[in-house]
Amino acid sequence: MTSPFVTTAWLADHLSDPGLVVVDASWHLPNTARNAQAEYLAGHIPGAVFFDIDGIADTATNLPHMLPAPADFARAVGALGIADDMTIVVYDEVGLFSAPRAWWTFRAFGASKVFMLEGGGPKWRSERRHIEAGLVRRNRAVFQPRFNTHAVVGFDTVRDHAQNSSRQIVDARPAPRFHGEAPEPRAGLRSGHIPNSTNVPVSLLTEQGRLKPVDQLQTLFADRGIDLTQPIITSCGSGITAVTLALALEQAGARDVAVYDGSWAEWGAHKDAEVES
């Protein structure tokens, strides 16, 4: 399969495959008053394990859900019963919100057969497919991490590119936050954007919980002045929707896309970071 997505029909037909694991990677913004883990326990796709985006992360930093060390990731997902050679199908209960972050994380650590469920949990439920409750426990597995250093960039790299415009920086936050017209939801962050960055709000990339068609994405990026043939760095508030943006760019034809993991949670608080509005 060349698409990053599988359909609900495909998943229903393969749920019992021994080499397949389903992963609920739901995560919600604090202002939604939703508890992803509680919702998982109340009902999820049969056999799905819960991937805690905030828990399977670098806990030594105060930045939210940063990538953990490869060995820590391998230990955490191995305990969930996920091996690097399995077919991994990730979904979330919004449709296409946090699943891309987990999908990207598995890919960044070397999983080669990782996909997202098209339409996610909402589509599965709308088709009245089976749901089960409770915690799923799988036998421990061995995940051999192979970290892709090209998938992610840090503060210093982004600052260098922002200063000399040597790589396109694209921000997925809503336009009012990008332009400094609305406050950041996290305390202590300045308002505005990374110098020489371009705004493509994630809300423009999806429709009814699915990624928009490739031709529409290509038109959108062209209208925003994004050159898909040149290297791109994506950013957002905390590294969640930056991945959805990276996914959309790749689907539109970009081949050199990296995610700024710290995103505005880091940049907006960093004393050495220049801010534009």
Rank of each mutant, 00 (worst) to 15 (best):
P4D: 06
V6S: 09
T7A: 11
D13K: 15
H14F: 13
P18M: 02
G19R: 11
L20A: 08
W27I: 13
G43S: 10
I45L: 12
G47K: 09
A57C: 05
T61K: 07
N62Q: 13
P68Y: 03
F73E: 01
R75E: 11
A76T: 03
A79N: 09
L80W: 06
G81A: 07
I82C: 05
D84W: 01
T87C: 07
E93F: 14
G95Q: 11
R101T: 03
F106W: 02
F106L: 06
F109I: 04
K123A: 14
H130L: 15
R138F: 06
N139W: 05
R140T: 04
R140E: 09
A141T: 07
A141N: 04
V142F: 10
Q144W: 05
P145S: 04
P145I: 01
R146S: 10
G154V: 03
A162T: 06
S165T: 14
R167M: 11
Q168R: 02
A175W: 01
R177G: 09
H179V: 02
A187V: 03
L189F: 07
R190H: 11
V200I: 09
P201S: 05
S203N: 06
A222T: 12
D223A: 10
D227M: 08
I232N: 01
I233V: 11
S235F: 00
G239E: 01
A258G: 14
Y260E: 04
E266G: 02
H270S: 12
E276W: 11
